[in-house]
Design a protein around this nucleic acid. Structure first.
Lengths: 197, 197
DNA sequence: TACTCTAGAGAACGGCCGTTCTCTACGGAA
DNA sequence: TTCCGTAGAGAACGGCCGTTCTCTAGAGTA
């Protein structure tokens, strides 16, 4: 086993444990025994727990956003469907075993500004999500994408949090319905604007 | 200083510290020194840290929901305004110094099912919030309150989380705009339903 | 075979945390 | 004044955690 594979195993273990139990509840020794990587090598690959947390959040950010974008790209035909597909994907995610909300919201809630690195990673993740939603919203309702995306972001975050606290039931479909209504409203005010000018 | 006052002081210190730094980052000694209550008395009033956490969450739940309901009651004239006033109050809350999101979402994100007591308190709090929103929504759009409240809850939660991560700017007003659009949509489909029947 | 280098296992270390215990001082009753 | 009960201060205890260090075994090379 070379360092590359060891890093992956450690990161896999860290992801599973951090996501399930939180950052502070998981000890390095838990990650060591779960990954099967010796402490010596673990500390060669990641110089500290903090570095491991950062790597965990970075990889989660990349994977999560890629999975969402892939699903939306392959499931949606037009811009409006794309936005609704976001919530279909959320529903699939919520139904996964072990779902426990957004890793970033959880980490940020746990540490907040106590850990500037975690806070910064959370902000980056949410900004990227907002940028993605803005892109989708701009395609669906040209000229009103930014305002719509801000509202959609609230519904997405709310769905995730509600699903995490209450279990999957209904949060995704309620979010989808809310998104559809917000889309309708944005389209309506856009056509009204066009007719006025 | 009697036990009653000591309990209040301890709870005040716990609230400030837990909310700012999270549950696990705060030690009993921090609470002792901040409250100025001796360790002996502290443990007489609260038998363990867990009990103190539970008391903190309970009091926060009561105060938070009372503050929201009071504001809405005094600020809104009709049912529609009441729902929009919820987001005005959120905006005031977000702007308070030291605002760091929802104490329950943070605690739940930190510990999740690792602490069943925290998870249960979070569920209770959010169910009470949903019940309150359902009551407001039912007054605004009779017969469609439940569905509307489910959507409003998502927007409320999303606003809180977004404000916590990104700072106050815009989350409350975006939430207000989204709520208004969702209200319009619910009213529209209600009148359509009435005309159909 | 003899030597060297590396890796793994886990002991060790310093520090913190929740909780309990000890010691001292003091206020009120006899 | 003497005794008693209580309170506070903080030491003590057991345990965990992140990180480093030690020791041993084995693989590769001459």
């Amino acid at each position: 086993m070379d360092d590359e594979e060891a890093s992956q195993r450690v990161l896999d273990a860290a992801e599973a444990l951090f996501y399930e139990r939180g950052l502070q509840s998981v000890g390095i020794d838990d990650i060591r025994s779960t990954s099967g990587v010796s402490l010596k090598r673990l500390y060669r690959c990641f110089h500290s727990k903090q570095e491991l947390v950062t790597a965990y959040l970075d990889r989660t950010d990349r994977r999560w956003r890629a999975a969402l974008a892939n699903y939306v790209r392959s499931a949606a035909e037009d811009p409006r469907d794309a936005i609704l597909a976001v919530f279909d994907w959320l529903g699939l995610w919520f139904a996964e075993p072990g779902f426990r909300g957004c890793a970033f919201i959880n980490a940020h809630g746990e540490l907040g500004e106590v850990s500037p690195a975690v806070a910064a990673a959370t902000r980056r993740h949410k900004e990227a999500l907002l940028a993605y939603l803005t892109q989708l919203a701009e395609q669906a309702v040209p000229g009103a994408g930014r305002a719509l995306a801000n509202q959609l972001l609230l519904v997405v975050e709310g769905s995730i949090v509600t699903a995490a606290v209450h279990g999957a039931s209904g949060a995704a479909s309620a979010g989808r319905a809310a998104a559809a209504a917000l889309l309708d409203a944005a389209e309506l005010s856009r056509t009204a604007r066009l007719h006025r000018d």
